[in-house]
């Protein structure tokens, strides 16, 4: 029972911290996008427009709730909650410092992958439940995409597992603390695996250039087409949560997690995560998006074999050189 309470305490803290950081992430993204487009971005609302995200949330809270007449009400209503919850759930096993971790599972990596895979269910529930053709197309795309990119994601995540010999995320970080960050050595495995992991993670969380389930120039707003108010807000939030948590996971698995000199570990973790988030947004605001079939071809023809080769190579490295 103690563990339950302790987990709840840590979990609550982590969740609140992540949710709060979202406001900053949102602001960063809008300002960054504006800079990249020679604009200014939100700045009227108060100095620097920092309270833009709270204003958005306050507004979304007040909007009327519309359920389309032909929608599947249960799916339609509860998909957003599930979507946001699943997005947060991934963060449970990420160690933000040596002590701050929601639940340090022995099979942490497996849990990460499993929780990530569940993420497609609310998306599909939303798309199917809306009974809207744009949403349905988005949902079908999301399913195909998530299911396909699951494979390279698992393969890429296997590389740190093989190299460190553990599925416990905190042990992977400790290993990197004692040896090297995986991206530094063996770099010929770490760098490709890191890139593969990030690509697959982007695809899983539907960010550009992999955001075809939500492609607003084709599918209006994709799966969220029929959602109003805070239900849409939850999907919107889940999208950002995915990005932040994917960054945190990548930082833990490949960039040494909370490892770093001079400052307490948690700051390093925050800095690395934030750096990854900025990189993702940089990609987002400078690339076009793929077409769904190109995305699938990219996955099955290039990423999957690359992942298999990486897994075999890292096993060879561990057995013969390690």
């Amino acid at each position: 029972m103690n563990e339950f309470l302790q987990g709840g305490l840590y979990g609550g803290g982590i969740i609140v911290a992540i949710m709060t950081s979202l406001l900053f992430v949102l602001w960063t993204e809008r300002k960054m996008a504006a800079r990249m487009q020679s604009r200014i971005g939100p700045n009227i609302i108060d100095p620097l427009g920092f309270l833009q995200a709270p204003a958005d949330v306050l507004k979304l809270l007040q909007k009327e709730d519309i359920v389309p007449e032909k929608a599947d009400r249960a799916l339609f209503n509860y998909a957003p909650v599930l979507g946001a919850a699943v997005a947060i759930a991934v963060a449970a096993v990420v160690p933000f410092s040596a002590t701050i971790v929601g639940a340090d599972l022995d099979v942490g990596v497996l849990y990460l992958l499993a929780a990530g895979a569940v993420g497609v269910l609310p998306v599909f529930a939303a798309g199917w439940g809306s009974n809207n053709k744009f949403a349905l197309l988005g949902a079908m795309r999301a399913i195909a995409q998530s299911v396909s990119y699951e494979v390279p994601l698992v393969l890429a995540a296997l590389v740190p597992v093989i190299l460190t010999g553990s599925m416990k995320v905190s042990e992977i970080v400790t290993f990197q603390q004692n040896h090297h960050w995986l991206i530094v050595w063996p770099f010929f495995l770490g760098v490709p695996a890191f890139v593969l992991f990030m690509l697959a993670m982007l695809a899983e969380s539907n960010r550009i250039p992999f955001d075809i389930p939500e492609a607003e120039s084709e599918l209006v707003a994709g799966i969220t087409t029929e959602y109003t108010g805070m239900k849409f807000g939850l999907f919107y939030m889940a999208e950002y949560l995915h990005t932040v948590i994917a960054s945190a996971v990548a930082a833990s698995l490949f960039l040494g997690g909370y490892d770093g000199p001079f400052a307490p570990g948690v700051w390093w973790m925050v800095a690395k995560t934030f750096g990854m988030v900025v990189a993702i947004y940089y990609l987002r605001w400078s690339l076009m998006r793929f077409r769904s079939d190109q995305l699938m071809a990219l996955c099955w023809r290039w990423l999957v074999p690359t992942g298999v080769v990486l897994v075999v190579a890292s096993a060879l490295f561990v057995v013969f050189a390690g």
Partner: peptide, 15 residues
Amino acid sequence: DIDRMGVIVRATPRQ
């Protein structure tokens, strides 16, 4: 840059 006022454009009327 109307985004300065926090205005963004949504393609669907629902939002």
